[in-house]
Simulated assay, not measured.
Amino acid sequence: MASNMGIQIGNAWFQRKINLRPQHRGVHLVTEEILRQVPELLQFSVGLCHIQILHTSASLALNESWDPDVRDDMEMMLNKIIPEDMPYRHSCEGPDDMPAHVKACFLGSSLSIPITDGKLALGTWQGVWLCEHRNNAGSRRRGFILIAKMASPRNQSRRPFTVCIEGNIGSGKTTFLNNFKQFNNTMVLQEPVELWRNVEGMNLLDLMYKDPGRYACLFQSYVQLTMLQLHTMKSPLPYKIMERSVYSARCFIENMKRTNVLKEVEATVLEKWYDWCINHALIETDLIVYLRTTPDIVYKRMRARARQEENLVSLEYLEQVHQIHEDWLYHRTLFDVPAPVIILDADQSMEEMFVQFEKCKTRIFERCRQSERESRLLTSPVSSPKIGAASE
């Protein structure tokens, strides 16, 4: 992902080039895929988000987000209104090319959507469509530019109470985080897997699993960069919940050292990079929630969800990662623990985990209120005793 951005507090502009995964011909809902790559929108209270596609045979539209049949019907109607068997003069790129240009003119190459309280002001059933008009567009549809203008910056005077959700692969971190999305006072930051899958069109996560000897150091360096970006992201909301952290990135580096995946010099560079982050970046963490699991359980979950990149992840690997997390957060014998830890049994079913979430949510919000009370006590002025008053 290429990133060209600048934020100016006041009447601010933000710009980023983002990439979307290639799609087959048809109409595709891409709202969440775009938002995952632009978490900075949470900083804007009132503004305008402008999205533009940089191609002439694909288009963007704002329409139905719930029923996928609507998208299929739209593709059918576009093909009926603009057929391929017309006497087009421009035919050197195939019979689908000129109709694709016409469809792109009909629908348009950009959208402008209002921003309200850090979110796109979409209707209940509205979503952003990518309309792919070519049969074999391949990876060309990965180049987008998104621009957001902030007319009124939100108040960011207080640092949010920050919680990191830690655990093994398949421990339920994403599901746990999703429960917090219902609260308007919480910024939820998922692990930036989409960024790792699409670095200027390259799936770095997949390359790391397939050839760790070559790509592990490069991948972990990028992981630390993207996690640092999440840690330092400002928010006007009182709570920030993150999936993993810069701290847990070190767990995977430790495992690569133990299994000799990293060369000694590579491990040294990554550890120096980590030390710099800890000593110089503002990555305060107030609480860690450790979703404690057994490797057998997470292995079954991982196989069931069938992510392409995880096909090569073995039970042995999960056992290694589990032991490092145990030594770090449970036994506390490996690394420094940067914040208090709540340990939850994440081997349980979804229903049982929901009960645990409710209890944990209450503890998180109560810890934040306690932290605010302590902060007020520390910053409140202390009256000087009157002359002659008896001292206690």
Rank of each mutant, 00 (worst) to 15 (best):
G213I: 02
L218H: 06
L262D: 05
T124R: 01
E194K: 06
K149A: 11
K149W: 13
G170C: 01
N198V: 07
I169P: 10
K257W: 00
K210G: 13
I253R: 00
L228N: 07
Y247V: 13
Q182Y: 11
T232L: 01
M242Y: 05
S245K: 00
E243R: 01
N179I: 00
C164Y: 00
R141P: 11
W129D: 08
V223P: 01
S139R: 02
V128Q: 07
G172S: 04
A151L: 10
L120Q: 00
N203F: 01
R140A: 14
R258W: 02
K257Y: 04
N179L: 04
N198P: 01
M150H: 04
T175K: 01
Y215T: 13
L205H: 13
M242A: 05
I165C: 06
W196A: 10
A121L: 00
K181V: 15
Q156E: 15
N184Q: 14
K240D: 08
R244W: 02
V223H: 02
N260E: 15
N184I: 01
R197G: 00
L122Y: 08
P192H: 10
F144G: 02
V246E: 06
G201Q: 02
F161P: 07
I253N: 04
N260V: 05
K240Y: 04
G138N: 12
S139Q: 11
Q126E: 15
N135R: 13
M256N: 12
A249Y: 00
P212C: 06
R154D: 15
K173C: 05
G170T: 14
Q156P: 05
M242I: 07
K181N: 12
R159C: 05
T124C: 10
E254R: 02
R197A: 05
S221E: 09
S157E: 13
K257E: 15
L130M: 12
N136Q: 14
P238M: 12
M242S: 10
R134D: 13
N179F: 09
R244T: 13
I145C: 01
P153A: 00
N179V: 05
K240V: 11
V188M: 07
T232D: 02
A249L: 10
P236I: 02
P192E: 09
H231G: 08
L189R: 06
F144W: 14
I241D: 04
G167C: 11
Y209P: 09
N255I: 11
N135Q: 10
D211A: 02
R142I: 02
F180C: 09
H133V: 10
N184L: 12
E254Y: 00
Q190G: 15
A121D: 13
K173F: 04
N260T: 08
I145K: 01
H133L: 06
Q220M: 09
R141H: 06
K234N: 14
E200I: 03
R140N: 11
T186R: 00
W196T: 09
P212F: 09
K234M: 11
L195M: 08
M256D: 13
R141Q: 15
N198F: 06
Y222P: 03
K257A: 09
